[in-house]
Simulated scan of single mutants.
Amino acid sequence: MVRIKRTPLADQAADVLMERIRAGEWPLGARLPGETTLAPQLGVGRSTVREAIRQLAGKGVLETRQGAGVFVTALDVTEDWDAVLQRAGIISVIEARIAIEAEAAAYAAERRSPQALRAIRKALSDRQEHRGSTEEYVDADMRFHRSIVAAAENPVLLELFDSFVPRLRQAMIDMLRLGRSLSEDEDHDAHADLTEAIASRDAEVAHRLSRTHLESLKAALQ
Score class of each variant (00 low, 15 high):
R6Q: 10
Q12L: 15
A13L: 14
A13E: 11
L17C: 07
M18G: 02
G24N: 01
P27K: 07
R31N: 07
L32G: 02
P33I: 07
E35N: 13
T36P: 04
T37W: 08
L38Q: 15
L38E: 14
P40V: 08
P40T: 04
G43W: 08
V44H: 07
G45Y: 09
R46A: 08
S47E: 12
T48M: 12
T48S: 14
R50Y: 12
A52Y: 09
R54S: 12
R54P: 01
K59N: 14
V61N: 03
T64D: 02
R65N: 04
Q66V: 11
Q66N: 09
T73L: 07
A74E: 13
L75Y: 08
D82E: 14
D82S: 15
Q86M: 11
I90D: 13
I90S: 11
I91Y: 06
I91Q: 12
E95K: 12
E95S: 11
A99T: 11
I100W: 01
I100V: 12
E101F: 04
A105V: 09
A106R: 07
E110Q: 15
P114Q: 08
Q115A: 14
L117W: 00
A119V: 02
L124K: 00
S125T: 10
Q128E: 14
E129M: 10
H130I: 05
S133L: 05
S133K: 04
T134F: 07
T134G: 06
Y137S: 15
V138C: 13
D141Y: 10
M142T: 14
R143V: 01
R143I: 01
F144Y: 13
F144G: 01
F144A: 02
H145L: 07
R146S: 02
R146V: 02
S147V: 00
S147E: 00
I148G: 00
P155K: 07
P155C: 09
V165D: 02
P166G: 04
R167Y: 02
L168Y: 08
R169G: 05
M172E: 14
D174H: 13
M175S: 07
L176A: 10
L182T: 11
H191C: 03
H191Y: 06
L194G: 00
T195F: 00
T195L: 01
E196Q: 14
E196N: 12
A199K: 03
S200C: 12
E204S: 15
S210I: 00
S210M: 04
Q222A: 06
